[in-house]
Design a binder for these strands. Structure first.
Lengths: 233, 233
DNA sequence: TATATGTGATTGAACGTTTAGTCAACATCA
DNA sequence: TGATGTTGACTAAACGTTCAATCACATATA
């Protein structure tokens, strides 16, 4: 295939082997060979700016309207700069999901103490706060927005699998500690953890996609009463 | 605003008042004035074909790649025919969500009997069947795919609110009947219903977007054991 | 019965716009 | 000097949408 350019003929590049990039799933993320100042996520300053610009674009316009141009509008750099760091829109979005998942997990890992009952309550309150701050609403909304990608793209699915596995493990450990300390009744910690997690996720999801505020409160209070009367010995 | 067309100048039509259409939210759905053969959804034969084509396109390609061209590829009609029935892509998608919600609700309303415990179990099994048929997987997947639209578009949000309200009511009635018949312990049926619904939805959602098959089984069995030991007197 | 008229359904070809992605050139700095 | 970061101009393809023209078929007129 050839395309006209100012009267010249140009060969369409099948694979631009000049640029350094590493495979991530089926798409690729470029990674400069020389070391740069990187944050905890392994991102250079510009890459992090791109992530935040993507966040803003996604929150402001939703997935359907999300485009590279829109992201660069939110960015203090040109559109083509994005392609210097990511091979494609898909590669960018996958990296962005990773970035978002990391930030989501940061909000949870805080304080796993020695009081199983309070710890469990803390986990629930963290994921289902009484009043949702704008920051948290955005974080959760992005996960809802990107989750349909997990239906077909395995690389996305893996990210969501990881979130749930991590959350489940945290809850399971807390339940197990409670059983060992005779605070909770004997039960299968793994089963109970999946059960609590499913309830939390269902409530979280409904909260964002429906107008049934009372349902959130009801589900949350029923979850607490389940823990009080069913789990606590 | 004016646009060139074959050397002529044409006035951009502000509103084509010739065509009959009725307002639905912020967008519009055209509705022919003359009566046609319509199905239970109030759709003509062609409209129903369009709905099924949209279903196929969405399942095959996902929301991100969904276009009018793609829908017409699945349809035995030209692309422009779609615009004879729907004013815009948004109007089409909104109508399609309504169509899907109706079909989803049809799968539930069957058999509300006189045995609260079995009825409750039947509801759970209907929404979380042991082996998910391809048909149900597609139906649930479409809801997951369209749900991010509910984050920002109120008309979509209302549809999802209605699904949950309907499901919640069904569960609540079953729980209330169980309490009245002394099969279930005294509890707030509304609270319990929201709790059960949240767990079901969370499990359903995780099942579609993660690879944690065991989690689905665990959550489901914990839900059953909750009902057995907590709800049943 | 044959023909004209009207109306909705359907079409293909176009419209202007936006998209993801490319590239040669320039900037910066070690 | 050479590698990296950055840019704006550019492309082909795809997008949603419009529209004049045609088709199929019912009813009215002769």
């Amino acid at each position: 295939m050839m395309s006209k350019l100012n009267g010249l003929v140009r060969i369409a590049p099948v694979q631009s082997s000049k640029k350094p990039h590493c495979a991530v799933g089926q798409s690729t993320i470029r990674r400069p060979t020389v070391c740069m100042t990187r944050d905890s996520d392994g991102l250079s300053a510009t890459e992090e700016e791109i992530m935040h610009a993507t966040h803003r674009a996604l929150v402001n316009s939703g997935y359907a309207e999300l485009s590279i141009s829109l992201i660069s509008d939110e960015l203090d750099k040109a559109k083509s700069t994005i392609y210097h760091y990511y091979d494609s829109k898909d590669a960018l979005l996958l990296r962005f999901l990773r970035f978002t998942v990391n930030r989501f997990e940061e909000t949870i890992n805080t304080s796993i103490g020695d009081h199983p009952k309070e710890d469990l309550n803390h986990i629930i309150t963290t994921l289902l706060p009484c009043d949702l701050t704008e920051e948290k609403r955005q974080l959760h909304s992005i996960l809802v927005t990107l989750s349909p990608q997990a239906l077909e793209q395995e690389v996305f699915r893996e990210q969501f699998t990881e979130i749930d596995a991590r959350l489940s493990t945290i809850i399971e450990k807390t339940v197990r500690r409670g059983i060992d300390a005779n605070v909770f009744r004997a039960a299968d910690p793994a089963h109970v953890a999946e059960y609590i997690l499913a309830t939390i996720k269902g409530t979280m999801y409904s909260r964002l996609t429906t107008n049934r505020e009372a349902a959130t409160v009801a589900a949350k209070s029923s979850l607490s009463s389940y823990i009080d009367s069913h789990l606590i010995s």
